[in-house]
């Protein structure tokens, strides 16, 4: 039986004089790994923030796991999210920060060690985040999105700042995670993510949904 995890109906979002999203409707079922495609400024990040309950839509209905995300905060428990404009406390070490996140989410602090080793951050995670490169920070933020046992993992632009090896590891990790959680990725670069989020893709342009369908179909239409 199809169980809808995310339901958006006629979502509009206006920031002052800019209409970021125009009448977007979307549903994502359990296990329906989804790709949100679009160029810069197409509204991907705003859409993700609305699903996460971080930005209120100007109009429309949002349900995540059957609840209104603005009334019931599911972040860090049922829904893990990585934003493109994340920020990390520069005065904490990577390990301190990740342990802190694990603590908040009620996860055993040792459980982060495996993920950290997988993403190759253990060599520097005892240094303060302030001295990390953009790629190092990105890995910390990614690991944060994987801590816990969420039903939905939403990643906004996960490949930016990562080197080739790290991108491959991320894809590999997402393949594993896709068995337990529903993955939603917003990106404008693919790097093989289309093989994981193969169930559904939507294409946004200038705040409007211009295409929706199976990922391979949408990609074919875009490319040819």
């Amino acid at each position: 039986m199809r169980r809808e995890l995310v339901v958006l109906e006629n979502i509009c979002k206006r920031f002052w004089f800019t209409e970021a999203l125009k009448n977007i409707s979307l549903s994502i079922a359990r296990g329906e790994h989804t790709l949100i495609l679009g160029g810069n400024g197409s509204g991907k990040s705003t859409l993700i923030k609305i699903v996460g309950g971080l930005v209120k839509p100007s109009k429309g209905l949002v349900k995540v796991l059957g609840y209104n995300p603005f009334k019931y905060n599911m972040l860090g428990r049922e829904v893990n999210i990585l934003l493109d404009d994340y920020s990390l406390p520069p005065w904490l070490t990577g390990v301190e920060y990740l342990r802190y996140i694990a603590r908040i989410r009620g996860v055993k602090r040792d459980s982060i060690v495996d993920i950290a080793a997988f993403f190759n951050i253990t060599s520097y995670w005892k240094r303060v985040i302030g001295v990390y490169s953009a790629g190092m920070k990105k890995k910390i933020a990614l690991i944060e999105a994987f801590i816990g046992d969420p039903e939905i993992i939403i990643l906004d632009d996960p490949f930016t700042a990562l080197d080739i090896g790290s991108r491959k590891r991320l894809i590999e990790f997402l393949e594993r995670k896709a068995k337990d959680a529903t993955i939603v990725v917003a990106t404008h670069s693919l790097y093989g993510i289309e093989n994981i989020c193969r169930n559904k893709a939507i294409l946004l342009d200038n705040g409007e949904k211009i295409m929706e369908g199976e990922t391979i179909e949408v990609l074919n239409k875009i490319m040819f």
Binding site: G76, L83, S87, Y100
Partner: peptide
């Protein structure tokens, strides 16, 4: 402004 507030909510802390 710095979005630290927001990132803590993302981490799983209630508002």
């Amino acid at each position: 402004e710095k979005k630290i507030f927001r990132d803590m909510i993302i981490a799983g802390i209630s508002r």
